[in-house]
């Protein structure tokens, strides 16, 4: 089957439809048009309870609230959170502040929406409700300081990219009129995978070696940089120009908080939604640093 989940597309043709749409929303999972009617009906009576760990401010105490939602077919965690903003009432009938959470792309490419869903770090936008149970626990992404509710501050991810010098040193962003160097398709395939990182921090949340914010500062230069930054070192070290600064990057990850802080737990590679081969990067960097150390010692 073609199974378009959530295909309840109904472009409004006139004002009456627009009003109808409003009513639909109010009545929650009212049947949709066309082929979706059956699907909508199947979901009509599905109630899902969201248990959300909330926190009003960085230094205030967390607490839990429960909400009942009626997901539409194809809904994901971001879309139900969005729907919940319209009417944030708990199961006890208490009207509360809308839940603060982050999202942008809603197609798993910006990395904004990462959170703990039923205890596992995942991008909320690509986590469909039909794959979850009837009680869903939502918590902020661990390891990062909570800003509010499900929003966290991931500045550390970007700071760590600075630490490992994740850039190519250009003379300037102008054209040098040099043709792009040749890169084999084989190398392209290997490199491209790393360039899909969306800085979501899910791998970091799962890495036992990546310290929680309670144990480090955002600009701590000795805490573990984490697998995502290491993968960028792997990527840039392979680039024809990036190679020129390979030694700098290797030295950066040979310092405290660098590559050797990885304990090979390999959760990172299992949870990364973009399936980035983080542990291959770690292995390859292991080799590069081994050789670099030999060079430093005896070269």
């Amino acid at each position: 089957m073609t199974g378009i989940a959530g295909s309840g597309l109904h472009l409004t043709r006139d004002g009456a439809d627009a009003a109808g749409r409003e009513r639909d929303r109010d009545a929650d999972a009212a049947p949709r048009t066309g082929g979706d009617v059956e699907q909508a009906r199947a979901c009509e009576h599905r109630h899902v309870e969201l248990r959300i760990r909330r926190q009003d401010a960085p230094d205030s105490a967390p607490y839990w609230q429960r909400f009942r939602v009626h997901p539409r077919p194809g809904d994901n965690v971001v879309s139900v959170l969005r729907a919940l903003r319209l009417d944030p009432v708990t199961v006890d009938g208490e009207r509360v502040d809308p839940i603060a959470f982050e999202h942008n792309c809603m197609e798993e490419v910006c990395g904004a929406c990462a959170m703990l869903i039923d205890g596992m770090p995942r991008p909320a936008c690509s986590t469909l409700l039909e794959d979850l149970g009837d009680v869903i626990r939502l918590e902020p992404l661990p390891k990062f300081p909570v800003v509010r509710d499900l929003m966290v501050d991931r500045a550390r991810i970007f700071h760590n990219l600075t630490r490992v010098q994740a850039w190519v040193r250009l003379d300037g962003p102008w054209d040098t009129h040099e043709r792009a160097p040749r890169i084999s398709q084989r190398q392209w395939v290997a490199d491209y995978l790393y360039s899909r990182c969306m800085s979501c921090g899910i791998c970091l949340a799962a890495c036992p070696q990546f310290p929680a914010s309670s144990r480090t500062n955002a600009d701590d230069n000795r805490a573990f940089v984490g697998p995502s930054a290491l993968a960028q070192v792997r990527l840039l070290n392979a680039h024809p120009l990036g190679r020129f600064n390979k030694t700098d990057r290797l030295h950066a990850i040979m310092a405290e908080g660098g590559l050797t802080d990885c304990g090979n737990a390999q959760n990172c590679v299992r949870v990364c939604p973009k399936e980035i081969p983080l542990t291959t990067a770690i292995g390859e960097l292991g080799r590069q640093t081994t050789l670099q150390a030999l060079k430093d010692l005896f070269g």
């Binding site: 850039w167 054209d175 398709q185 840039l236």
Partner: peptide, 17 residues
Amino acid sequence: RTFERMGVTFSRTPEGL
């Protein structure tokens, strides 16, 4: 070409171009 120098992983032909 400038993007390429920055490290953008543009797809390649079998000849590497």
